[in-house]
Each structure stands twice: as structure tokens, then as C-alpha cells.
């Protein structure tokens, strides 16, 4: 790994009451990396939504499990990697709901899409899921091989 990368990795219980800790970590690191308060808030929300989906959908609301968040800070971007040990997610099945369809749920995907530049699942990850979310410090077109929309609801 390049020396220009700063990495923080935390493992956290799948208890929803700890989501605010994740948000705090993401916001702190994002501000350190040079993101504005507003962008840091948006990133914190995106990662919190993704983690919520890990808890709700991938781990089946089991609160005695664990997952990991790795935050990699590069000079031009931040990468957030969520790893869990749940059943494999089928990325093609994950779609945000249409906004005109006013009903509870289905907005998590949409918020993540709004707040990150790219997302992708590492299909080679052996046991569980490895989701990468990327946000550039300045606007940049996401790689065509990466897609947005990494959650269930």
C-alpha cells in the first residue's frame, strides 16, 4: 500500500446503537481529509446507511455479530470499505426505489448514490461481502466499471 495512504480500520458490533460511532469516525476523518462540514455529514450518512443495510439485510438484524469499516484516505479521495460475514449480496438485485413511489423504506440506496462517487462489491472476497464506497475531494466522473447503489433499502 502506498505511503500516501492513511488507513484506519475498525471492527464494530452490529448493534444499531453504535451507528453514531461510525458516523463520528467518518465525519472526523473526512474533515481531516479536507472535506467541508457539509460533505463530511453526507459521507457519514452514506456510510451509516450502508452499515445499516449490513445490519438489517446481510446480517439479518442479528445484533451479536460484527463487521469492519476500513477508511483509506488518499490525496485525492477517500475509500470506505465495509466487510461483513453474511450471505453474498447480489449487486444486480439492489436498486433504489422510484422517488415518486412514496412509501416507507427504499431510500438508503438513493442516499448512498447521492453522496458517493462510486461503489462496488469485491466479488472475490471469500467469506461475506466487501463493499467499497469512494468519494473524491473534487468532482470526478466515477469509473465506468464501478456502479452506485449498494444497499437494499
Amino acid at each position: 500500500m502506498s505511503s500516501s495512504v492513511r488507513t484506519l480500520r475498525i471492527e464494530i458490533s452490529s448493534e444499531p446503537r453504535l451507528l453514531h460511532v461510525l458516523r463520528g469516525v467518518v465525519k472526523y476523518r473526512a474533515k481531516q481529509a479536507g472535506f467541508s462540514d457539509s460533505d463530511a455529514d453526507c459521507l457519514a450518512m452514506a456510510i451509516s446507511e450502508a452499515a445499516s443495510n449490513v445490519i438489517r439485510h446481510t446480517l439479518g438484524n442479528r445484533h451479536d455479530d460484527r463487521f469492519a469499516l476500513e477508511v483509506n484516505t488518499y490525496p485525492d479521495r477517500m475509500e470506505f470499505i465495509l466487510e461483513d460475514t453474511g450471505p453474498k449480496v447480489q449487486p444486480e438485485s439492489i436498486r433504489p426505489r422510484a422517488l415518486e413511489d412514496v412509501r416507507p423504506g427504499g431510500l438508503g440506496t438513493y442516499f448512498i448514490k447521492c453522496f458517493v462517487d462510486a461503489s462496488s462489491y469485491d466479488e472475490s472476497f471469500p467469506n461475506g461481502n466487501r463493499l467499497k464506497l469512494v468519494k473524491y475531494l473534487s468532482p470526478k466522473v466515477a469509473d465506468r466499471h464501478e456502479s452506485a447503489g449498494p444497499d437494499h433499502g
Partner: peptide, 16 residues
């Protein structure tokens, strides 16, 4: 101070 998609879903459920 913060509301996420689950909070929004709750408000939409209330509206319904």
C-alpha cells in the same frame, strides 16, 4: 440533529 432513511420511512408510515 440527524435523520436517516429509517427515520424518513417512519415519517412516511405516519403520513400513510
Amino acid at each position: 440533529s440527524y435523520i436517516d432513511s429509517s427515520g424518513i420511512a417512519t415519517l412516511v408510515e405516519g403520513l400513510q
